[in-house]
Design a protein around this nucleic acid. Sequence first.
DNA 1: TATCATTTGTTCGTATGTATC
DNA 2: CGATACATACGAACAAATGAT
Lengths: 254, 254
Amino acid sequence: MGSIQRPGALYQQVAAEIRNAISAGEFPPGAPLPSETQLIERYKVSRPTVRNAIAALRSEGLIEVVHGKGSFVRPTPVPALTIHRTITRHDSATYVLGHRWETAEPPQVYRTETTAATGPLLELGEGEALVVADRILADPSAGTRALHRTLIPESVIKGTPLADMPDADPEKVYAELAAAGRDLTWTETVSARMPQPEERAALGISEATPVLRTVRVTYDGTARPIAAEELLVDAALAQVAFRITAAEDAPAPS
Amino acid sequence: MGSIQRPGALYQQVAAEIRNAISAGEFPPGAPLPSETQLIERYKVSRPTVRNAIAALRSEGLIEVVHGKGSFVRPTPVPALTIHRTITRHDSATYVLGHRWETAEPPQVYRTETTAATGPLLELGEGEALVVADRILADPSAGTRALHRTLIPESVIKGTPLADMPDADPEKVYAELAAAGRDLTWTETVSARMPQPEERAALGISEATPVLRTVRVTYDGTARPIAAEELLVDAALAQVAFRITAAEDAPAPS
DNA sequence: TATCATTTGTTCGTATGTATC
DNA sequence: CGATACATACGAACAAATGAT
């Protein structure tokens, strides 16, 4: 299936170098990359090799190339359009984001701080203390895997039993929070993007295949959300389905 | 933005030829494409040109290339995994799949027959009569467009007022069906894939960007669905959000 | 308006490495 | 092991888009 390109290939090395330079901030979002000629000099490779590296970054959605101008770091896409639905939960199964998964590997739990990527999820600024749990889930019957991440602000956990069991299942987390008398509501958002190289490797995703990203944010009636869950699955193998029934007081949809 | 590659480029012509050959059935799903050497002879072009064409088809997700073996037509991905949710509709706005759109161009309505792609949506075999309406929708405030398609079996329309107004808005369709005494329920499915070249052009989607595909299937309690809607939007610009509240009799989710 | 330098796009040629059968 | 097929890499030349002169 997903033909694994040789990682030691010259153009892959160049692509990795540029990738690192971007994440290191040398080329911030929107900034132009060095021209092909400059990259040739910088890395002492031929033009086909440079172009191959650029093509790899392009197909990851990391950069954008404009004929006659140059290559530019693609800004993190902020969805300008959100298609909203308001729904009421009726299902009771203890599923992770609506599906029963097995945990393929022990969860990785760590403390960190909110970043520009994770902060907005929880409506927090950058640099706030955060407890993160990463899981690799598996559905053996479908032969699929998924990446699951739970993010909870440390301020929410502090003083609760959760502080002593940071590797708890999401279900237990919600049960604890509900037991603490919180009245929970949720928002779920479905989006899609091209996977990053590590995500492709972890999920075994073949090229030109996007990932579905489902984010669930939990509220308890206070100003800020108290937790966020993120689920990444191969979009070629998985979909998210909603069975809908009209409430008696609701007219027909559309 | 989306740097439009020159359509007249040699490798684009070759890519188009292969694309046509695939959709014409010369290379069915799973079948191997001719080798690079054979393509060089067939189209009288150089190896880089052939490889460029193959790279284009790869990035569309149309073919899969295996080192040392060959290129193969990728079978239409059937989602092996569906993440299910059951929800109750409470919103009443007359939106198209939950969002207010403007119709950018007059809808294109035509009669056709179900295919291997459209048949399963309505749980019909191939060759059943179908009324299809294609729309290009726009959200000027977000600067985004969407492709919307309505599919209704002719057997459902026959004898109803809809037979005389095939270009009706989806809202009117549901209103008519509900007025006919049908008790409607719906299923919505969110998936993602790489756009086809025409879809990319119609939506102005930049490369390496997937499209979100939302499909709504309408049931009326009988065995088969009576209508299907399909909405395609740029996944970099749009997301689908569900605001969730727990029913009083429902436990916490997940 | 026209021209020019810069930058990316396209196309050829050639050679060698590596996976598959 | 050999034949076939795709992957990587270099060199070279011209075309086309962009922005500044």
